[in-house]
């Protein structure tokens, strides 16, 4: 099975406007999305996945903090994470550096864990597989 089919393999019908035989518009439910939609959507999803994988490797290599990984996983930007956690954006960006992230107090970590919906244990490490 091709990858774009895999991404769209949830059988969720979507509604499209279509003309029937008499030329009247009706809402038609289709379980299969058009090919163009599948291709472009999967390209974006794949790019996101590749980006996430790159960041994960950077974290494992000690160049970035796990916070950066989880932010990317939630498809957020530093600005959005800053607002959600109630921490200034420049501090959030600073916390992407592993040596600074390692020294964070539990109270700050707690804010991040609430904002990202990641448990306190998980937020300190990234998955290794």
């Amino acid at each position: 099975m091709e990858l774009e089919d895999e991404i769209f393999d949830d059988g969720l019908p979507k509604a499209y406007y279509k003309q029937n035989d008499k030329g009247q518009y009706v809402l038609e439910k289709k379980a299969n999305a058009p090919w163009a939609e599948k291709v472009s959507c999967s390209l974006i999803i794949l790019a996101n996945r590749a980006n996430l994988e790159e960041i994960r490797n950077a974290v494992l290599a000690g160049q970035k903090s796990p916070l950066c990984y989880y932010m990317e996983m939630r498809q957020m930007t530093p600005g959005m994470l800053a607002k959600a956690a109630g921490i200034a954006a420049f501090r959030v960006k600073r916390h992407f550096r592993p040596e600074i992230f390692a020294k964070l107090k539990p109270s700050v970590l707690n804010r991040y864990s609430n904002a990202l919906r990641i448990s306190l244990e998980e937020i300190k490490i990234v998955p290794t597989i």
């Binding site: 499209y16 406007y17 518009y25 809402l27 058009p34 291709v39 472009s40 390209l43 974006i44």
Partner: peptide, 30 residues
């Protein structure tokens, strides 16, 4: 490619009823 795919995604994927709402507007005009 990414930029182009994003335009197409906005046009088709996010609940537009096809062709970036153009078919829905045609239904309205009808």
């Amino acid at each position: 490619c990414r930029r182009l795919a994003n335009v197409v995604r906005m046009q088709e994927e996010v609940g537009t009823g096809g062709a970036g709402f153009r078919f829905m507007y045609a239904a309205f005009l009808q």
